[in-house]
């Protein structure tokens, strides 16, 4: 670990649907070592752009993954508080929800018209172990799982924040879930 003088190239999605015709990307050079993406966002907000809108909740403290800060980093969904910052980053809103502004989404409104992407994770539920308690459905902050016709399906795997979250894996009382990054 170094003394944090190295700078990352950060591109941030900016879009206020109330005033902007289309989104743009602002670029910054920000220290990244030892930091999470949310540390980088706070740095940008404090020191460069007070207009930047992003969410924070539990800030990744304890074992918590509340999901308030869900975003997309370098094309992969992630929880910003647990996603380590890296040298080249493109930070965008999480693909599932309607945008309020910049990286802030409305968790009550799922986007209706997005192109379906290939998931970057492979989620398997062992049918011999699964007790169909549907805890995974309740605990996933971005609603990856669905209870359909008596079965649990990871129908939203493309929204999975994978390693930055993995709550379904931790909390499954039957240890039936595995999430593999492809």
């Amino acid at each position: 670990m170094s003394n944090n003088k190295n700078l990352a190239n950060v591109k941030i999605f900016k879009f206020d649907p109330a005033v902007d015709k289309k989104p743009r990307y602002d670029t910054y050079k920000i220290p990244y070592e030892g930091r999470s993406v949310i540390n980088v966002l706070e740095d940008i907000y404090r020191n460069f752009d007070q207009d930047l809108a992003y969410r924070y909740g539990c800030e990744g403290k304890g074992d918590c993954r509340c999901g308030a800060c869900a975003v997309q980093v370098n094309d992969l969904p992630a929880l910003a508080c647990r996603r380590p910052a890296e040298k080249e980053m493109v930070i965008e809103p999480h693909p599932k929800y309607e945008i309020i502004k910049d990286l802030v989404m409305n968790f009550n409104k799922v986007k209706q018209d997005f192109p379906k992407k290939t998931p970057s994770v492979k989620i398997t539920i062992d049918p011999d172990k699964c007790v169909k308690c549907a805890d995974c459905v309740s605990i996933c902050p971005v609603g990856v799982y669905e209870a359909k016709k008596g079965k649990i399906e990871p129908s939203g795997a493309e929204f999975c924040c994978s390693e930055t979250c993995n709550q379904c894996v931790s909390y499954c009382q039957a240890e039936a879930i595995s999430v593999k990054v492809l």
Partner: peptide
Amino acid sequence: TKSSTYNQE
């Protein structure tokens, strides 16, 4: 910043 939308400031 004078935005009305989700203005953290």
